[in-house]
Amino acid sequence: MLVTGPRTRAVRRPRYPVTREIDEQTGLGEAYMRSLVRTQLRLAVRLCAVLAVVVAGLPLLFAMVPAVREQEVFGVPLPWVVLGGLIYPWFVGCGWWYVRQAERNEADFAELVDRSPSAGDRADDP
């Protein structure tokens, strides 16, 4: 892992593996955990906010702008097209995107935690 090499050397290498810091609930371990939870929460909140804007916005849009609710697409009223069809693939797309992001966050965290000190030693070798 050449890319991680310089960064590992720059950071003070922990005495224990971070997993042990987490196990012993030291300040450092807690900081790692809080950062993981915060990252995942930020992702979840972001997606829920988009969902809320769309889902709460549609009834409001239909209520405020009658032209939208009476709009027809190929003879079918727009609300039926959106709520009866398009919204489902959008849900799946959102879910798929979320899973990718959440797994990436976890992989980043695992790499951060597992890297030291053994991975750091490896990076020092060449």
């Binding site: 979840a44 829920c48 969902l51 709520l83 009866g84 849900f91 959102c94 979320y98």
Partner: peptide
């Protein structure tokens, strides 16, 4: 009529919220 389209939408969307907030 159309207002009830929200029912299946919500029953599916509930899984999206579940996925994002609590599944893992």
């Amino acid at each position: 009529g159309a207002d009830m389209l929200w029912l299946p939408v919500g029953w599916t969307g509930g899984y999206l919220v579940l996925l994002v907030l609590v599944s893992a």
